[in-house]
Structure formats: C-alpha cells, structure tokens
Write a protein that binds this DNA or RNA. Structure first.
Lengths: 233, 233
DNA sequence: GCTCGTCAAGAGCAGTGCTCTCTTTTTGTG
DNA sequence: CACAAAAAGAGAGCACTGCTCTTGACGAGC
C-alpha cells in the first residue's frame, strides 16, 4: 500500500529528475529561450503532451531549473568556503569569488538564468527566494566572522551611509550579524562588484578589451576585499 | 534621377525608422524574447513577409535596436557629464552613474538587451562594438582629467596589479589616458560595480532585500568614487 | 514603350506552448 | 480477487512563431 504508493511516486520523482536533467542539458546548448518542452519530450521518447503531467507549463520547468541552479551555486560557494582555513578571511573571500566565477563559466546559460535578464513573461515565484540567498549567507558569514575576530579594519574613505539606509542595513544584517551599517554597505558593494564582474565577463562586455580575465578578476576581488576591510593577503 | 532615387530611399529609411520604433515599443512591453516580426508587421498594417525587405532576419532587427540602445545610453551619459562643473570630478562621476541607472530603469528591457544575458542564438556582430564603448570613454575621461588636475589620490589599500595585467591595462588606457595600471584596475572595479549594481536592481536580486535603492546606489557609487581616488564630495 | 529592380501580398513549412479527448496502466479498497 | 478511481500516455488540434518562395503590381531609366 504505502510501498506501492511510493513505488509510483518514486518513478514519478525519477521522471521529474530525468526531465530536469535533459532540460538542463538542452539549456546548456540552446540557452534559456531555446528551451523547448517538445524537444525535451522527444529526447525522452515521450509525446509532448505527456510532459505536462509533470510540469504544468514551461515556466514551471524553468522555475525548477532556477531553484536547482541557486542550490548548486550555493553549494559550490559553501564548499569553497569550507576548503579554506577558518581564520584566513581574505582567502575565504577569494575562494568563494573564484567558486562563483568558475561555476558561471562552466554553465553560462544556467548562470544567465539566475543572474541575467529575466526571461520574458516569466515571473519568479516565491519558492525561489529561499535558495536564491543560499550563497549570500556565506559572504555574510565571512565578514561577520572577520569582524568577530577583530580582523576587520575598513579603510577610511567611504562616506558614512545615510540614516535612511539603516532599515535596509538591518535587513541585510540578518545574513551578516554584528557589523556596522558602514560595513554592511561595503559588503553590498563587494557583493554587487563580484557579480558585476562575472556578468561582464560572461555577457561579453570584456570582449576585445580584457584578455587576462582570471588575473583581473582575482586582483579586483582582492581590491574589494580591501574595501570591506579584510586583512591583506 | 538622383532626386527620385533618394525619394525612394527616403521612404525606405522612414519605414526602417518606423519599424525600429514599433519594435522598441514592443520590446518595452514584451521583452527581447517576445519581439515578434509578425506583430511588428501587424502594427504597421503590413504583411509579415514584407518586413524581410527591410530586415533580413529577426537578429538584424535586434542588432539595430542594440546599436540604437548603446548610442542612446552613451548620449545620456555624455549629457549627464556635460551638465556638471568640469572640476567637480566626483559630481561628474555621480551624475553619469545616475544617468545610467535612470536610463536603465526607464527602459529595462532595452537595458537588458545591452547588458543582460545575450539573447539565445544571437551573436553580436562587429557593428555593435563601436557604439558599445561610447559610454566608457566618458568614465575614462573623468578619471583621466581628475588625474591630470592632480585631484586623484587613490587610497592605499588595493594590492599592486600583477605584471600580467599590464597589456590589458594598456588597452583600457586608450579611453583613460595618463593613469597608472593601479588606477586603471580601480576604474574597472568601479565600472563593473556600477553595472553590477544596476543589474542587481533591475534583474531582481534586490527584491525583498533593499528598499531605498536610489540612496543605496548613490552611497555605493560614492564609495566606488573614493576607491578610484576621486576627491570626497 | 519596355525592361528591370523594388516592394507588397499570400501561401506554405517546420517549429513552438498548450489544451482537449480518448485510451491504457496503475492503485487502493470492498 | 474484482472493480472503481486515480494517474499517465497518446494523439489531434489551436494559435502562434521565424522564415522562404512565388506571384503580381508599381515606378524609374534606357
């Protein structure tokens, strides 16, 4: 009864996994806009309408891929952080930066699905906001732990954040406890700078301009680390 | 003879302009992926096949829109820079940053076409790289002129850029003459940080996180200005 | 006047997302 | 075990897409 029920659910789960796998493969070659339910169905030896038993619409498939993607990049970031000595805060930051970049370069279309322009007509549902912040808690933790260890010394150069930003800083502090508003906003600069750099490299803004992209990336991430106040390498 | 010939060419140019205008309007509501030649043709009271007399493919229409877009944002940036006192380098930088952000917020889909994920199957032709750098010369000029005026004092915090980056720095220096490799790389940090911030705001990464986006943007751009070495406001 | 290039129009092809109906298979229960 | 109910597959079909090909009209230059 329960065993048989789960038997059916198991094959269903297996099919869903297979569909998303094929879709991810198709995403890798065609890009988000070229993702075709019919092509996925063909690859599975299914008739196109049968796919709709598992994903009621193309957007639902996209949502599944997006959630998987956020989890995957989050996991990559977590692994990178775990591989560095706990008290080497700059090393940890650099490691997670490289993890993001490497992950993005290896599956550009999947990355574009997460951090590129939203696919037209697609509205990200609530389910995505949880996994979407899985990586950010890692960045926040590095900064928080550096602060707690007394190793955070932001250079005096940025103006003090205006009072109006304090509520936003409070929100961000949920992943970055124990730091001042000033450090929070510096963290946001580094955060957006990290992804801005990856975006530019991936979306072509560096074409015909920058050749040594890994080196430039690393140097700029070190620059951002210094801006946050992490100790020099 | 020549008059009549140009008469024909004039109506042709007028039609091309009308097509791109309608396409841009459609882009604003549907997004890049939803741009449909047939819909444009319908809006013009044309039959769909007639459009192909003017744009041989959908990609060619996209290319035209992209070139127009780069020129438009370039012009917006130039105008913003021209509106600030020549020797207020931080003010000029802040003005162009706000110009980029405002331009992007007013036509998010067009911005996504330029700085978002590349549309699937679309390969940007050579024609786009000229207009694509129209805005960057403005950023570069601000930094160069600040340097020439002796107003550029980068805070000591970033490590020195590695030797391997010198050739890339040389390339970038074509829009940012007279500055050291160190300043060039700082400029790239600011450049990517600017667009990283706009991307995050536009592509939804700030949803449920940041409320006072304009204020945060301005503060972070000031922080990046300080990182470059521009004088405090 | 006649030819030739330009253009609009329409039909048509292959593909898409999605819905509907019909049939088959699987499942839990009397 | 038998049977009704639920789930899944199959296929046709609708409206749409980009794009191609052919046909017929128009206007400019020889």
């Amino acid at each position: 009864m329960n065993a048989s029920r789960t038997a059916r659910e198991r094959v269903r789960a297996e099919l869903i996994r297979e569909i998303t796998d094929i879709a991810r493969r198709q995403l890798a070659t065609e890009g988000a806009g070229g993702l075709s339910l019919r092509a996925v169905a063909r690859d599975m030896g299914m008739v196109s309408s049968a796919i709709y038993r598992y994903f009621p619409s193309r957007d639902d498939l996209l949502t599944a891929l997006i959630i998987d993607g956020y989890n995957a990049i989050g996991e990559a970031v977590e692994t990178a952080d775990a591989g560095s000595p706990r008290d080497d805060f700059t090393g940890r930051w650099l490691a997670v930066c490289h993890a993001v970049r490497t992950w993005a370069l290896e599956r550009p279309h999947e990355y574009a699905l997460l951090y590129g322009s939203p696919v037209p007509g697609y509205q990200a549902p609530e389910d995505t906001i949880g996994p979407a912040s899985r990586d950010t808690v890692v960045y926040g933790r590095i900064i928080s732990e550096a602060q707690a260890a007394g190793r955070l010394t932001p250079p005096v150069m940025c103006p003090a954040p205006p009072e109006v930003l304090s509520s936003d800083a409070d929100a961000v502090r949920s992943v970055m406890p124990g730091v001042s508003d000033d450090v929070v906003t510096r963290g946001i600069v580094a955060w957006t700078g990290l992804f801005g750099m990856v975006n530019f490299e991936l979306f072509g803004q560096f074409n015909n301009v920058i050749d040594h992209r890994r080196e430039l990336f690393e140097h700029n991430m070190l620059c951002l680390a210094a801006l946050i106040g992490l100790p020099p390498a």
